[in-house]
Design a binder for these strands. Structure first.
Lengths: 270, 270
DNA sequence: GTTATCGTCGCGCATTGCGCAACCTATTGT
DNA sequence: ACAATAGGTTGCGCAATGCGCGACGATAAC
């Protein structure tokens, strides 16, 4: 294509002009390396549709900032430790309550039911974020509300990942029944929590309120701890028990998306 | 500096020219954000010594690649989730044995004693990396050597962070005494391991060889697991028990540095 | 030997990124 | 209420700057 031929920007799906072309290309190099793991200059040049030497200069600049590792001996260029430094600085400042809203919105849009994100403090679950589906009948607003850990999907997720001793202590303090389906037997609940841990998600069928069902999944932070739960809840007539498995995947995806925003690297699981 | 004033590049400590100026500036923006956590356009413009609009365009490009989050409502620009994505891709390809050498070298240079990095496989510690101090008397070469987990500083660190059941199994198989200081009582060792976990580092005084002392600390990978231990070891006459605490900080720093290279974000602890 | 792949170096053109200044919008202070 | 400060956005015109090009050196494959 050489100088000013044909299509201005065919690669990036973004419509309006590229603010700074060389920077855009450099960042695309990072994307390529993230995807490929390793690449040679010529390879990247081909993919970007630019000349070798151009990419050469770009990656040299990236190398100076440690974002790319120059090929040690054989092999191609790779992402460097600078990326990890940046991520450290990013993760340190991230907070569930700030990141949750868009993920919540997305999830409720997909499923068409109300979604919540909850954290746990001093033995109770606290809802920090909620998104209503477009639907007509607005559910109650749960934000800020404290709920018991043993009777909701989100609560059970949080409870399941509490430190051993805290969990044991809570099981012993007595499990208030809210409906006839609430798990009030410590042993049964303990088994259920184990299943939740190994399975990776939880559901609750009319355990907190008659006619209210929910599905929840754990949210991890950058160091792999469970810091929140994200859930979808709806009335039994719209979200009957047999429909619960089908919302599993979207909920897990949302949980992963939120985890990612908090710095929980990798571990995509379908 | 406006148009072509005075000195070409006095600011960058790097001698030769800047390969691609705009990219270099953009990456510096990332560095600034990593350091400050949050910054406004004008602020960055001041620090870079360029015009607001210039930084504006650079940042816009960064935002398109999700490396920077535009100010939601109030506050300044921050690093974005793209950094975390990059780090994920980086961390996935990193390996202890490849990253350990420079850290080992640095540590042994600082302390003036031999340093080792060890991992654990099937109940034993395996040294994967070693660096000798400039010192005259070369110690034995430990690389590749298999050692017991319960009798060295590195081994105890690794043992302390093994999964509960593996650890228990190893304690039961009998603890070979190597010297009269070797911990051979399972209960005592178990207590020691607990101390190591809470304290964050370990030492061994003539537990494996008479006249050989060591200090070790755990190395974490991107998902927070302990994947290695790094240690400093030396003869008792140069590294007597009362000097051990003073090498604690350098060893911890080295462990952190290595952890960082493996993608373990944040958690700087002195 | 030849051939292919990969990275580096200088050169010269014009593309492209930059500084500037005006403008717009909060937010703050009196 | 109004001024004043700070942050961000837009358009323009100049030339600095980044780019393509082709040649060269190195290494490896065959």
């Amino acid at each position: 294509m050489s100088t000013a031929t044909a299509h201005p920007w065919h690669d990036d799906s973004l419509s309006s002009g590229p603010p700074v072309k060389s920077v855009d290309r450099a960042l695309t190099v990072l994307d390529i390396l993230a995807r490929e793991g390793e690449a040679s200059l010529s390879q990247m040049a081909r993919e970007l549709g630019v000349h070798k030497s151009t990419v050469g200069r770009l990656v040299e600049t990236l190398v100076r900032h440690d974002l790319v590792d120059a090929p040690n001996g054989s092999g191609g260029y790779r992402l460097g430790v600078g990326c990890l430094r940046l991520a450290g600085a990013t993760a340190a400042r991230r907070d569930v309550s700030l990141e949750a809203q868009p993920v919540c919105d997305e999830l409720s849009a997909v499923i068409g039911e109300t979604t919540n994100v909850a954290i746990t403090r001093e033995g109770v679950a606290i809802n920090v974020c909620q998104s209503e589906a477009h639907s007509t009948v607005a559910m109650r607003n749960w934000i800020g509300q404290h709920t018991a850990l043993h009777a909701t999907a989100n609560g059970k997720v949080l409870l399941a990942h509490l430190p051993e001793e805290d969990r044991a202590a809570l099981l012993d303090t007595g499990l208030t029944p809210f409906t006839e389906h609430t798990l009030t037997c410590p042993a049964a609940l303990s088994e259920e929590l184990h299943r939740i841990r190994t399975r990776g998600w939880a559901f609750a069928v009319e355990e907190f309120e008659e006619g209210l069902n929910a599905v929840a999944a754990p949210v991890f932070d950058h160091s792999g701890n469970v810091v929140a739960g994200i859930s979808v809840a709806g009335p039994s007539y719209r979200l009957p028990p047999d429909r619960l498995p089908e919302v599993r995947a979207p909920v897990l995806r949302a949980a992963n998306a939120l985890s990612l925003r908090l710095g929980h690297v990798g571990h995509v699981r379908d």
